[in-house]
Design a protein around this nucleic acid. Sequence first.
DNA 1: GTAATGACCTTGG
DNA 2: ACCAAGGCCATTA
Length: 113
Amino acid sequence: MAKTQSDFFDQVFQVVRLIPKGRVTSYGAIANYLGAKSSSRVVGYAMNASHSQKEFVPAHRVLNRNGQLTGKHHFSTPYLMQELLEKEKIEVKNDTVVNLKKHYWDPAIELAL
DNA sequence: GTAATGACCTTGG
DNA sequence: ACCAAGGCCATTA
């Protein structure tokens, strides 16, 4: 083991990086894919540590169950997250992703194929 | 070492 | 249907 953080973190980062362009997912979905749906908080915390990661992590594609940009304030700039999502052709209204169901990407399903 | 917090989700009333 | 509280795991103070 001897991991700098936890394997859970690394797994989360890997999954987040695997999120296709123009797609978004939720913390619970990743946690569920890792087999820890009850630990959805840790997934969110992992995103907080994404800044410490060497590689960039598209945390802007990770939203909560409501499709809300809860962690936009943790980015370099609160507008960065929305801007990135809009660049992905994802419509964002009131800090919330529109057509979330349409852009939703579940690793437990997509990666399970 | 103990206590409190956190980019959440689920369940109970 | 809506509102409230609890639970889980890891990090930081």
